Simulated scan of single mutants.
Amino acid sequence: MLTDEELLRYSRQILLQQVDIEGQLRIKQASVLIVGLGGLGSPVALYLAAAGVGEMHLADFDSVDLTNLQRQIIHDTSSVGMSKVDSAMTRLTAINPQVTLVPHRTALDADTLAAVVARVDLVLDCSDNFSTREAVNAACVNAGKPLVSGAAIRLEAQLSVFDPRRADSPCYHCLYGHGSETELTCSEAGVIGPLVGLVGSLQALEALKLLAGFGDPLVGRLLLIDALGTRFRELKVKRDPGCSVCGARHLTRDASDFNEA
């Protein structure tokens, strides 16, 4: 049930017929894992806490640096030197003390990651490196949990949803394979702050759609964002039946393909 305070707090959300009280209850009863509390994880955590997600697992082994503050809006100047998890928890508790926050302050190894993913309903990958994304994807495929994945660098960004509960859904590995040996990070190539804010906000939106059960999630579609020209492009993505990560789960599926929508 929702308390009178919750009905008031989430009233603008509940007014939406796609959400209503039933959807808000689903959000309240849900648990999510946010991997990374940087540029993407900041708006993700802020919006999901504000929306009333019942339990949020926060994973980040890093501490707040002065260079983070240009885009990682969950942290502030007084947080410099603090654990990003502790900094985020302070801010999120101030926004919504009704949300249960579960900290993970050290890097998640394969076993720990698998255990945490098994506990939650949905995972949001807000990390900034390929190896973490691959590990998170594998854990989600193995546990059958939906994954909302975002990435941004320089003035370009990508967003997609991978849902192993759906027979037609690709996984992250179907799309990106083994990645690139010349992978760059934001600390090397730079990034504009509002772009990660945009992508993180869209990740939070996709998560709420999945948790509350409304709308058309970005499954089988890759959203490409060109911030320089303010252009959005969508690619259709099919699952690879030979994928080394998810292929064994649905052996009768179509071959991998990319088609511009």
Rank of each mutant, 00 (worst) to 15 (best):
51 A>K: 00
38 G>A: 04
192 I>Q: 03
32 V>D: 04
145 K>P: 05
215 G>D: 02
43 P>V: 11
117 V>I: 05
122 L>I: 03
71 R>V: 07
63 S>V: 15
46 L>I: 10
92 L>C: 05
186 C>S: 13
35 V>W: 00
75 H>T: 06
22 E>Y: 11
162 F>R: 00
134 E>R: 14
175 L>P: 02
173 H>K: 10
258 F>R: 11
159 L>F: 03
35 V>Y: 00
236 K>A: 13
27 I>N: 01
119 R>Q: 15
95 I>Y: 04
227 A>C: 11
45 A>I: 03
220 G>M: 03
160 S>Q: 12
205 L>Y: 14
15 L>C: 14
221 R>C: 08
13 Q>T: 03
152 A>H: 02
46 L>D: 01
241 P>C: 12
60 D>L: 09
154 R>E: 12
9 R>S: 09
153 I>F: 12
39 G>I: 10
37 L>E: 00
133 R>M: 03
136 V>A: 07
82 M>N: 03
242 G>W: 10
155 L>S: 11
30 A>W: 07
138 A>N: 02
6 E>L: 12
61 F>W: 14
197 G>A: 02
236 K>H: 12
77 T>Q: 15
246 C>G: 07
140 C>G: 00
50 A>P: 01
3 T>K: 09
140 C>Y: 06
18 Q>F: 08
49 A>E: 08
98 Q>D: 15
82 M>S: 04
36 G>R: 06
79 S>D: 04
237 V>Q: 04
126 C>K: 06
215 G>L: 05
114 A>Y: 03
259 N>M: 11
75 H>K: 05
194 P>K: 09
191 V>D: 05
110 A>H: 08
84 K>T: 00
26 R>K: 14
253 R>M: 14
102 V>E: 07
23 G>A: 07
113 L>S: 02
254 D>I: 08
246 C>Q: 07
237 V>D: 01
68 N>R: 06
123 V>D: 01
53 V>G: 06
61 F>R: 08
114 A>T: 11
129 N>I: 05
134 E>F: 15
16 L>M: 12
248 A>L: 13
143 A>P: 08
69 L>H: 01
218 L>I: 05
142 N>P: 00
163 D>N: 09
229 G>M: 13
240 D>R: 00
19 V>Y: 07
38 G>S: 02
161 V>C: 03
128 D>L: 10
26 R>G: 09
26 R>D: 08
85 V>L: 10
164 P>G: 02
13 Q>Y: 06
152 A>C: 02
165 R>E: 11
130 F>I: 01
196 V>E: 00
111 D>K: 14
79 S>R: 04
221 R>N: 10
195 L>I: 06
250 H>D: 13
180 S>Q: 15
164 P>Q: 01
178 H>V: 13
125 D>H: 08
166 R>S: 08
213 G>K: 11
243 C>H: 01
160 S>A: 15
245 V>I: 12
212 A>D: 06
6 E>S: 08
198 L>E: 12
232 F>R: 05
220 G>A: 04
56 M>G: 10
112 T>C: 12
217 P>S: 11
226 D>P: 06
249 R>K: 15
130 F>W: 04
14 I>F: 13
180 S>Y: 14
225 I>N: 08
227 A>W: 15
210 L>K: 00
187 S>Y: 10
186 C>G: 00
131 S>L: 14
